[in-house]
Nucleic acid binder design. Sequence first.
DNA 1: CGTTGACCTAACGTTTACGTCAACTCCTTG
DNA 2: CAAGGAGTTGACGTAAACGTTAGGTCAACG
Lengths: 151, 151
Amino acid sequence: MVEALAFAATGGERPARLYSIGDLASEFAVSPRAIRFYEDQGLLKPQRIGGNRVYVHGDRARLKLILRGKRLGFSLADIKEMLDLYSVDPDHLEQLRVSLAKGRARIAELERRRAEIVATLAELRELETAVVGMIRERERGSRKRKQGGPS
Amino acid sequence: MVEALAFAATGGERPARLYSIGDLASEFAVSPRAIRFYEDQGLLKPQRIGGNRVYVHGDRARLKLILRGKRLGFSLADIKEMLDLYSVDPDHLEQLRVSLAKGRARIAELERRRAEIVATLAELRELETAVVGMIRERERGSRKRKQGGPS
DNA sequence: CGTTGACCTAACGTTTACGTCAACTCCTTG
DNA sequence: CAAGGAGTTGACGTAAACGTTAGGTCAACG
């Protein structure tokens, strides 16, 4: 717990919510080891208080994005690239252009994925109704029917 | 090439399209090694002609589904489970129920993913317009502005 | 003041999904 | 008939993303 430290640091005004690695780990149901690993890979850079990692609200938000990216099947390298889009320097025009291009590429990729998910959903739903039909047929009486693989 | 064999096998009527491992590999831009690996994991079961693997249309369709599943970030084990849904025995009621449950679970998961993709897309588009704005500001004149991390 | 509980680093182990040889068997072609 | 080219089966190597000890620090608690 870093609660006491939070008060000490802010003088008791607004706690500005600080988190230990354990806090975040249990909140998001991941291991501390995993969080440290994300840091090794450059996805997180928490402050330190005497060796111990201390996470602020922004770090927590980044972790959330990391985990969402993971659920979507992105690699940590990919996720890092996406996160880095948010910390672009608005004064460096060339960087801005590069970020814009990368961002748009990500958007296009996500669009493709969404389309593939929609297609998969359609197929699974079709299969679902087919299976439901088979169950019905098997429940009343006891007929037979064959089922092929994917067309 | 198995073209000649195709004719021999069907008597020259309808070739019924057969594929060698190399055919599928180049068509889908994956290595033969990968295709063999999918077979090892039980996701494909091509026929053999003298040791050589021969794929029919259904095998090709399965491979397509495998690769789509991969692009969506599913593990081969997950993909296998999904594929197995298509080869359920319509005579075994219990299996039907199990398949139905699994299928519905997959559907629910894909729905969640779709929602997360939509959310991510929204954020990236917001970022995009922000970056576009920064670029504009930097192009005419040369002002300054700051950009924070993810909220 | 000893011991728990939460944190730390360092280092090796594990699973997934292949890549990469090596060595062999078949055609087919010059 | 020699030489490719495409296929085969091992077997070992590898990158990613952690899990799992091992060993050590430090503050709080009875």
